[in-house]
Structures are given as C-alpha cells and as structure tokens.
Simulated scan of single mutants.
Amino acid sequence: MAVAASACRVLLTVCVYMASLYESLGAGGVLETEAALLAEMRGRIEEEIRKLDEKIADAEENLGESEVREAHLAKSLYFIRVGEKEKALEQLKVTEGKTVAVGQKMDLVFHTLQIGFFYMDFDLISKSIDKAKKLFEEGGDWERKNRLKVYEGLYCMATRNFKKAASLFLDSISTFTTYELFPYDTFIFYTVLTSVISLDRVSLKAKVVDAPEILAVIGKVPHLSEFLNSLYNCQYKSFFAAFSGLTEQIKLDRYLQPHFRYYMREVRTVVYSQFLESYKSVTMEAMASAFGVTVDFIDLELSRFIAAGKLHCKIDKVAGVLETNRPDARNAFYQATIKQGDFLLNRIQKLSRVIDL
C-alpha cells in the first residue's frame, strides 16, 4: 500500500534530502511522490553542491594539495549522503587521483564498499575488496586491515560463503571497529550464526561458546545465547525453541533474508547430524522425543535430508528405527584416488597414441 508523502517528510529531511531514494521509492510504489517536495529536495541538493564546488575552486586557487583533496572528499561524502551512487563513485575516483597516502586511499575504498553494501552491488564490493588487498601490498596499518576483514566477512555472508565469513568474523572479534556497518551486538549475531553451521563441535566450544568477547554481548540479542548453548549442550528441545525465536530476526536482516531457507536447512542438518553421531541405531520415537516433535515430523524431515545426501542414515519404517551408515573417510579418499588415477592413466594413454601417430 502506498504511503502518503507527507508522512515521510520528516524521515526524508533527516536523510538529508535523498531525492534519488525518494524517486526510486515512488517508482516502486512504496510511497506516493509529491512534486513540490521533490523539487525542494533537488533545489537543496543543487545549492549544497554549488557551495562545495566553490570550496573546491577556492582551494585550487588559494590553498595547497591537501586542502584540495579534502574539498573533493567533502563533495564525495555529500553525494553518498544524498544517495547519488554514480556521482559519488565518480567523485571518489577524482578524490583518489589527488590522494597519495595508502591509508587515505584505503579510506576511499571503504567509502566505496559502503555504497556497494547499501545498494547490494556485489560486483562493486568484490572489485573494491580486491583493490583494498592490493593496496595492503603497498603498505597499510593493522586497524584498516582488521576493518577490511569485517567488510569481506559481510560480503561472504551475503553471498552464502558462510564458512569463510565465520573465519573472518572470528578473527575480528577482539579488534572490531567497523561501527559504520553495524553495532557490535549485530556483529556477534552474525558471528554466532555463521559459526554454528561452519565449525565442528570442538572448534565451536573453543572459539565461540567460551569466547569472552561473545559472552559479554550475546545476552543482548534475544534467543541467541539459548540457540548457541543448547546446541553445544545437546538440549535439542531448547535449541528448536530458541531457533524459532531467531527466525524472524533472520528474515528481517537484509543480508541473511535471501538465504533464509538455505540457512534453515543447514542448521537442521547440523543438529540432526550431531544427534545421530552418538548412535549406531535409534528409534524414531526416541529422536522425536528428544526434539520435542512428532514421529511423523521427524520421518518427513529426515527423509528429505537423506534423499539430498545431507544425512548418512536410513529409515526402517516397519521397525520405526533409524540406522546410521556414516562413510569411512579414509576409504572414501582411497576410492576417490583410485578413480582419479584411472582417469589420469586413460588420458596419458590417449595422449601417447596421439604422439606415436
């Protein structure tokens, strides 16, 4: 349903007259645009840009290179504030051309990354991260390097590379300073969620469950402490209750929401695998009781995960028993080596025949 423009007037004023955002929301049917308000916003933006251009001209005529750079940077930041993506990126390039210090160039990359995350432009984010890493080869301080880990971790999480995201987040727990992206409790929220589906139980205990930085904050996020500790302590009824409490927060998160269904499956795979790890066989009734659900629910759930190759077990429906058949990792590696070796020998034989001819 469209929202009246007058109801958004205060919000848009706080947003420093983001005319581009206002137009895009109107085009998307989110709110009703008001021509007079849009014209007022455009006028204010043009007036501010005129003032910034005057400062740039004055700096170029009367001041030094440092002042010229600062004037161009101020114009870049203003374009970011008013939501002018393309103009902001163009102005950042101009500012970079007047920047010598590696640290200052890194700060410009961070501004570009913020634009990329705001618009969810993953191509821009990926290129900016690669650029930042190249700048670090020229020299860079640890504070900015640690900040980059959080940016890259957020990019990995937003593109469903949860394992790498967890690793980068865990490396940044004690050095987190990236408050321009999100507060520390949100960072801990992301760290716990990505770690649960990425780390084995021993690593989870050492790096997450017992981490003092996480213990100091985890209680501020509803259901997160119960979610983590009930999983580690094998309290599966409590785990499912806490997980259901977190689902709404995951759905509302702009980075996690696109992967909601995938994350739900991965978490359930982890918890079912952990439960079955202790058994050679177990009754369906016992498992259903442990999770606080019905036998029919467990039967339907496990059959899907078994068919998808996520769980290594089979269901004896007649006896009402689950039998695990965990693969032997060493034997599986041996079989894969034999298969690849046969493939390589065949390729060599074909090549030798071609050479003989």
Rank of each mutant, 00 (worst) to 15 (best):
S174I: 01
S281A: 04
A336T: 09
H111Q: 14
Y179M: 11
F239R: 01
K205E: 15
R9F: 15
L252F: 03
I306N: 00
K163F: 11
I355S: 00
L181P: 02
E248C: 02
M287T: 09
L135F: 09
K314P: 00
A74R: 08
L181Q: 09
A7T: 13
E301P: 04
F169R: 09
T175M: 05
L92G: 08
L228N: 02
V109G: 01
T191E: 02
Q335H: 10
L25D: 03
A165M: 06
T247P: 00
G29I: 04
S76P: 06
I315C: 04
V267C: 02
Q91F: 02
D299I: 10
L73E: 04
M120K: 09
M284V: 02
E266T: 03
E180I: 10
V3W: 03
M120H: 07
E143W: 09
A7M: 12
I188Y: 11
E266I: 04
E138I: 06
K127M: 13
L252R: 13
S225C: 05
L215R: 15
Q340T: 07
L204H: 04
E285Y: 07
E301N: 10
V295E: 14
S203C: 05
I80R: 15
R44Y: 10
L204C: 04
R69D: 05
E143N: 06
G219Q: 05
W142A: 13
G103N: 11
V354S: 11
A36Q: 13
P222G: 01
E226G: 10
Y190W: 06
F333E: 14
I298K: 13
R42M: 05
K131N: 13
L31C: 10
H259R: 02
Y279M: 07
D356C: 05
S66R: 14
K85T: 14
E23Q: 10
M287Y: 03
T99G: 09
Q349G: 06
H312R: 02
N331Y: 14
S167W: 08
T186P: 00
E86S: 12
K314C: 02
F122M: 07
D107S: 07
K133T: 06
G103H: 07
F305C: 00
D210A: 08
L215N: 15
E138N: 10
L108T: 07
F110D: 04
A132V: 02
I115R: 00
V318D: 04
D299A: 11
L92H: 08
Q274V: 05
T99S: 11
I315V: 11
